[in-house]
């Protein structure tokens, strides 16, 4: 009996919390289906009286959201693939190779993780303007192609393969390159997936950097485009909520499909610097 009461209380509290977490999402979607008039009416309606599908179409065409979407996909994809590639090579060197200055370099790179990226924005902007890369994919992507967080995580994963196996493979005539791609990488598949997913999410949602380095509509990513849409268009809440859904939905779906990896990525590797 006492146990049942306890269960009821636990589930009750958790449900209350879950409702609080979901309410903004529910309100977003519910509003996106209302007419502008209904959205401002009091008392508020929880469910739209009629589903106004036009809001979605209007929002989509009110700003070049297709272009924003394409930009976001390109930036997230290239950043993630590039970052994983540089991380795989470096993690291999730190895990299995022996070279002069290795420990010093590792320590320096580890220390850079502490520096807030906000501080690096100004010099990076200057550098990229000198290369005439402002308002290009280059500016959106290049600075994020190297992540020591990814290296650190992958190195841990590569370390689980015993060094003896590496030396044996070398004696059997396998090159470093072959060993890396045919033994280490396949073995680290789940950490690579986790790092990749976290990076896709981070890149998709990032705002300050793309806000600063883009100055034309055609180069905006989704969050920057959404922000511009919200100030340019005057506020029509149903359309703004529909537009917000465009930005949120892809990552929400990605997370729901791969939630095991996302959670593992965060739990196993502690914190993202």
């Amino acid at each position: 009996m006492k146990k049942t009461i306890k269960q009821v209380v636990v589930y009750g509290l958790l449900s209350l919390g879950a409702i609080t977490m979901l309410l903004p999402f529910f309100w977003m979607i519910s509003t996106a289906f209302k007419t502008g008039f209904e959205s401002l009416q009091t008392p508020v309606t929880w469910w739209p009286k009629h589903l106004v599908w036009e809001n979605w179409v209007n929002a989509w065409y009110a700003a070049p959201f297709l272009r924003y979407l394409i930009n976001s996909v390109i930036v997230a994809a290239v950043t993630t693939v590039g970052q994983i590639f540089t991380a795989i090579l470096a993690a291999f060197a730190f895990s299995k190779l022996n070279f002069a200055g290795k420990n010093l370099l590792f320590t320096i790179l580890l220390a850079t993780m502490m520096v807030p990226v906000e501080m690096l924005i100004i010099p990076n902007f200057v550098t990229l303007s000198q290369f005439h890369l402002i308002n290009t994919y280059g500016a959106l992507i290049l600075p994020w192609l190297g992540s020591f967080f990814a290296v650190f995580t992958l190195r841990q994963s590569f370390n689980t393969i015993p060094d003896q196996l590496y030396y044996a493979a070398r004696i059997d005539g396998a090159s470093d390159w072959q060993f890396l791609w045919s033994v280490l990488v396949p073995n680290a598949k789940s950490s690579i997936t986790a790092i990749g997913l976290l990076q896709v999410i981070g890149s998709w949602n990032s705002f300050m950097w793309p806000l600063i380095v883009t100055n034309s509509e055609t180069m905006r990513t989704l969050p920057v485009g959404l922000q511009a849409f919200s100030t340019d268009s005057g506020i029509n809440y149903p359309e703004l909520m529909a537009a917000s859904t465009f930005v949120i939905l892809p990552m929400a779906l990605l997370y729901i499909c791969f939630n095991k990896y996302v959670v593992a990525g965060i739990s196993n590797n502690g914190l993202k610097g």
Binding site: L222, I248, L254
Partner: peptide, 12 residues
């Protein structure tokens, strides 16, 4: 996993 900007619009 939600974009800060997008969810801030909702909170707005």
């Amino acid at each position: 996993v939600t974009s800060v900007v997008a969810i801030s619009m909702v909170w707005r």
